[in-house]
């Protein structure tokens, strides 16, 4: 009798668990399926447009919310269809769409690269004289004097302006142009030099016909990259075009391209990234001007040869570079 009671209780418990478990599941209606599939389609389109790369966080949130919405729909009709009512807040499907739109917006904003124009006029002055710094920014949120926009006491400047500077010695003036998602840096140098004394013309020397000196032509260029990226930034196209023009003028010149990274990330990853950066510049040049395969070489040196301090943002930016030598 006792055993029978026990079996009965156990059976009831198992049945209750089963019912509770099955009660959670419901079949999706066609409209619900369509709605979720539409969001999945939008996600695919956004991925094709590069949202995964340019807005990884927002894209991941949208995807996770969509999966969460699918689960929610199998659990409750009310939650699944709340979107059809005006008060759709809290609905996972709606959250997914919101995150997706945010991802697309972030991608659009990231295309807007902050750029600054900074010039010193004149760029060479006599001791005790002054020069004028002129600057203006595009797609920038703030402009800060100095190489580190987050440094304590960093001076914020208007988005365009003029400033008189009277350096005693040759000075580099650096400016951080802070955009919504990235920062660019500009430098203007004011050289302080003694004015040249105009010497009287020397007595005419006897004319000796000498062979014309051989002028060795060489061009060194540098382009920088965004973090973990190897695509060429629009801001660097002008620099690369100098190389293209040089190659057009000197068709047989040899080109050597070396890619570098900052110190963040593993050594192995940075090695691969530096090679991709070098390769990306090589492809650009090959696309612009005819280059024979034996004329061009490229290599990556990873994080092994920094030229600036990897602890500061500007230093990292300077280290994320490709050096191009054409001779």
């Amino acid at each position: 009798m006792r055993n029978r009671n026990l079996i009965l209780i156990l059976t009831v418990l198992v049945a209750a668990f089963l019912v509770a478990g099955c009660g959670q599941m419901r079949q999706l209606t066609q409209a619900e399926k369509d709605r979720l599939d539409n969001i999945a389609g939008m996600l695919e389109m956004a991925e094709a447009k590069g949202a995964k790369e340019c807005a990884p966080k927002e894209y991941a949130v949208a995807k996770a919310d969509l999966d969460s919405a699918r689960l929610e729909c199998t659990q409750s009709w009310e939650k699944c269809n709340a979107g059809e009512k005006p008060a759709a807040e809290g609905l996972k499907a709606q959250q997914s769409i919101d995150a997706l739109f945010k991802a697309l917006q972030v991608c659009e904003d990231k295309k807007k690269i902050p750029t600054c124009g900074l010039v010193a006029e004149p760029d060479t002055i006599a001791p005790g004289k002054c020069a004028m710094l002129k600057w203006s920014g595009e797609n920038v949120e703030t402009i800060v004097m100095g190489p580190d926009e987050k440094a304590k006491g960093a001076e914020k400047l208007p988005l365009s302006g003029l400033r008189e500077v009277c350096p005693k010695v040759t000075t580099d003036y650096q400016m951080s142009c802070v955009g919504k998602y990235s920062t660019n840096y500009e430098t203007a140098t004011v050289t302080v030099a003694e004015p040249k004394v105009v010497a009287p013309p020397p007595a005419p020397a006897p004319v000796v016909v000498a062979p014309a000196p051989v002028v060795k032509k060489e061009l060194a260029l540098r382009v920088n990259f965004d973090t973990a990226k190897w695509n060429i930034r629009p801001a660097d196209l002008a620099e690369l075009q100098k190389g293209v023009q040089f190659l057009k003028d000197n068709p047989g010149a040899k080109i050597h391209i070396v890619g570098h990274t900052d110190s963040r990330g593993s050594e192995k990853y940075n090695q691969g990234l530096s090679e991709k950066r070098a390769e990306s510049v090589k492809k650009y040049l090959e696309g612009e001007v005819e280059i024979k395969p034996d004329q061009i070489t490229s290599e990556g040196k990873g994080e092994s040869e920094p030229i600036a301090d990897n602890k500061t943002k500007q230093g990292q930016f300077q280290n994320r570079r490709v050096m191009i030598t054409i001779k």
Binding site: K57, V61, A228
Partner: peptide
């Protein structure tokens, strides 16, 4: 976070 940002954010979200 540098080499696979999307995967990292997705892992975090899930």
């Amino acid at each position: 976070k540098w080499s696979a940002p999307h995967e990292m954010f997705a892992a975090e979200e899930y």
